[in-house]
Computed example of a mutant assay.
Amino acid sequence: MVRIEGDRCYLRTFIESDARSLSELLTNNKYYWAQYEPLHDDYFYTEDAQLRKILESMQLMRVNREYSFGIYTKGRNQLIGHISLYAIKRLPYSSAFIGYSIDERFTKKGIATEAVNHLIHFAFNELNLHRIEAYVSPKNIGSIKVLERAKFVKEGLLRKLLYINGVWEDHYMYSILQEDYNF
């Protein structure tokens, strides 16, 4: 298990016993998050499906291919989001993608920015990655602000990149390089 302490939140890699709280988080935010990501079938939101995803993520973590964390409030230890480094590639790329979602009730509080900064630090200092990439919908102003506060640079528009809820959606590509990051 990996745990990263922050000021207002902490990140902890998921373990089997997190399946219920993760399922509840996903269910509670199903339609809020569906503005920018696909709705899933009903099974996806079940505890069983999330347990399977956690077990898969734990295996991927063992071989340094993915790190999936819950975002928890400090003090109350409440799961309020999730954040991942995924599709980790070693040389000649030495890169990964970052993805995150915050419970609607905890948005606009700077928690996503804090979580992203902690994960960037982990990626560059612990995993020694060279580049982190993120896709973000041009409509997702909050997420764009998170990335830009974390010093990600917009590299361009990827036309009709993702099929989301019946429509092909454009996404911006953002990145941050290890050399751009102030440790």
Results as ranks from 00 to 15, higher is better:
2 V>T: 08
4 I>W: 00
5 E>R: 13
10 Y>K: 01
11 L>D: 03
16 E>H: 05
16 E>N: 11
16 E>Y: 05
18 D>I: 04
20 R>Y: 11
22 L>Y: 08
25 L>H: 04
26 L>E: 11
26 L>N: 10
27 T>N: 07
29 N>A: 07
29 N>H: 08
30 K>Q: 10
31 Y>A: 07
32 Y>S: 13
33 W>V: 08
36 Y>A: 07
54 I>L: 06
60 L>I: 01
61 M>V: 10
62 R>A: 14
63 V>H: 04
68 S>V: 07
70 G>I: 04
73 T>K: 14
75 G>Q: 11
75 G>T: 14
76 R>A: 14
77 N>K: 12
79 L>S: 09
79 L>H: 09
82 H>N: 14
82 H>F: 09
86 Y>L: 11
86 Y>M: 12
87 A>Q: 14
87 A>D: 15
88 I>S: 02
89 K>M: 15
89 K>N: 14
90 R>M: 09
91 L>R: 15
92 P>W: 02
92 P>D: 09
93 Y>I: 08
95 S>H: 04
95 S>V: 05
97 F>G: 04
97 F>Y: 15
99 G>D: 04
100 Y>W: 03
107 T>G: 00
112 A>R: 00
118 H>Q: 15
125 N>E: 15
125 N>S: 15
126 E>S: 15
127 L>D: 05
128 N>T: 10
128 N>A: 12
133 E>T: 09
133 E>P: 03
135 Y>R: 11
138 P>F: 08
138 P>D: 12
141 I>F: 05
145 K>R: 14
145 K>H: 12
146 V>S: 01
148 E>H: 02
149 R>I: 08
151 K>N: 15
153 V>M: 11
155 E>H: 09
157 L>C: 10
163 Y>N: 10
178 Q>E: 15
179 E>K: 14
179 E>I: 13
180 D>A: 09
182 N>K: 13
